[in-house]
Design a binder for these strands. Structure first.
Length: 270
DNA sequence: ATGCACTCCTGAACGC
DNA sequence: TGCGTTCAGGAGTGCA
């Protein structure tokens, strides 16, 4: 389940393979991902040279010399992998550039791709209203406090709101709340600003550590090289229901919060 | 404006 | 062994 660290890992893997390369051929084999791909996506990318590959929130951005940028989201199960032979069932888009042949593979098809003009890229509806990057300095305790003001929602829900801060998903929300010692169900409007400062800092530390580990591989995530991330071995609460809390030895609990599993230690997180 | 349920999809894990 | 059920969840949509 790609969140910010996983997308960062994928983008870093794509960069050395594609930046500076001319895309000889881009073949759309299955256009019905989360949204229908633009009908001319393959045609518009074919012949273009990739000039940069970056990331915004959980989106990858592949810029070309034709004034277009490919915006892609990995959804739940999207990955890029080298394609030595024939494409398989879930290899929906194939990129060929010289000796490089890559497939975008996405069994669940929650991912998406679109093309946007580079000069107005951040006006794209998927990107325009995103909150700040969690690793940038704008995202901090005072920012969280401003976002929390007057809100009656659970603190975990606020962390998952991409308009508040962009790129955090279920796993890292759980881990950051544990690191900050805050109960995920606590109403965000009632948390002292100082504690929100601890939380903002915890988000940064958890994400930076996860990027360093190549992300987390649970079921789906893999780097472009096929290597697996290993941050899942560092989880303190996520997926550890019934296990001993690494902080106090108590029991990690799971509860469902707005349809998602939330893991926390009731003793360490208040 | 805010908060919530619902929806998309498939493979893995689980229960009988 | 095999079938049916449940779960995982990012994020847009639509409703109260």
């Amino acid at each position: 389940m790609p969140e910010l660290p996983e997308v960062e890992t994928v983008v870093c893997g794509l960069r050395p393979l594609l930046v500076g390369q001319r895309l000889d051929r881009v073949i759309v084999r299955r256009p019905d991902l989360r949204w229908p791909l633009p009908v001319d996506l393959g045609q518009r990318l074919t012949g273009a040279t990739v000039t940069a590959i970056t990331r915004r929130a959980k989106y990858g951005l592949m810029e070309t010399d034709r004034g277009d940028t490919l915006v892609f989201h990995l959804g739940m199960s999207g990955k890029f992998h080298p394609l030595p032979g024939e494409p398989g069932t879930h290899d929906h888009v194939v990129f060929e550039a010289g000796a490089v042949r890559l497939a975008y593979n996405d069994p669940r098809r929650f991912g998406s791709m679109d093309l946007a003009p580079t000069d107005t890229l951040f006006d794209h509806p998927l990107l325009a209203r995103l909150g700040p990057e969690p690793l940038e300095t704008v995202f901090c305790g005072p920012w969280l406090a401003a976002m929390a003001k007057g809100r009656n929602t659970a603190v975990k829900t606020l962390l998952l709101d991409q308009h508040v801060v962009a790129g955090i998903g279920n796993i890292y929300a759980c881990e950051a709340l544990f690191a900050a010692g805050i109960n995920p169900a606590r109403k965000v409007g009632h948390i002292a600003p100082a504690r929100l400062g601890l939380l903002a800092n915890a988000v940064k530390v958890v994400l930076a550590d996860a990027i360093r580990a190549g992300g987390s591989t649970l079921r789906d995530h893999a780097q472009v090289s096929g290597e697996l991330g290993y941050f899942q071995h560092s989880f303190r609460v996520y997926g550890r229901e019934g296990g001993a809390c690494t902080g106090c030895g108590g029991t990690v609990q799971r509860r469902v919060q707005s349809g998602r599993s939330t893991f926390h230690c009731p003793r360490c997180q208040r």
